[in-house]
Amino acid sequence: MSLLTVEGLKISTDGRALVSDLSFAVGAGERMGLIGESGSGKSLTAMAITGLLPRNISARGSITLDGQQVIGAPERNLGQLRGSATAVIFQEPLTALDPLTRLGRQIEEPLRRRYRRDGLDPKTVKHEVLALMERVALPQPERIAAAYPYEVSGGQRQRVAIAMALACRPKLLIADEPTTALDVTTQAEILKLLDSLVRDLGMALLFISHDLPVVANVVDRLTVLRNGKAVEQGPVRDVLGAPKNPYTKTLVEAARAFDQALGRTP
């Protein structure tokens, strides 16, 4: 059984379908890319998986995460699931972090929760915070741990957000446009970091983005969403090499056109 199985997911509000009949699965350690443009329903899908949909938006169908049904589950169970099975990295690290709490403390929080859950010695938390910060390649971890979000760069904030996600030791990491707000060179670094972390820690990854070339290099499989429907699914090589859906074809051609303008570098 897969770590995450989405079956016949339908998300709607006031009788209007926002996502319809979406099915996909992510196995342990697998990497899936969810590609779609604004309004395609990709972020709603991520919210449904974590049980974070706003009240006026309802989900039907089935989402099983780590053997548990998410749709219709009581908030208490969801809270547990969010801490242990999955963690999310958001697009804008400045709004995802608490502006009035030092970064070290923000990483500490989920870590302490895991320590309590697993009955580990809380004395080692501080040490592990620094270890996590080193893991996400933050320079001078002590200095950054004592800093507030506005005092560090966007890339460093996103690294802190990743460290917070890692603190939960999730089986599935959901990254919702994690590099869209970042500079190109920083994006490249964060992508590299995500890639190595997911590989080294054996996490599964659900990477959500509108940017095809960004996703294509990080994941194994792709699901292309358009207007709330999956128009194409398959391994990256197949989808990019021989797209069947006309919309996917436009996307691939557009990305290739920019690549071509850029020219190949050795």
């Binding site: 490249a188 940017d211 095809l212 070339p213 294509a216 290099n217 290739r256 690549d259 020219g263």
Partner: peptide, 21 residues
């Protein structure tokens, strides 16, 4: 410049541009 960048920063920018596999 794209084919033969001289400055290291230019090179870094070019290398960082996301491309299709």
């Amino acid at each position: 410049i794209l084919d033969n960048p001289q400055h290291p920063y230019t090179r870094k920018l070019i290398d960082s541009a996301p491309r299709m596999p």
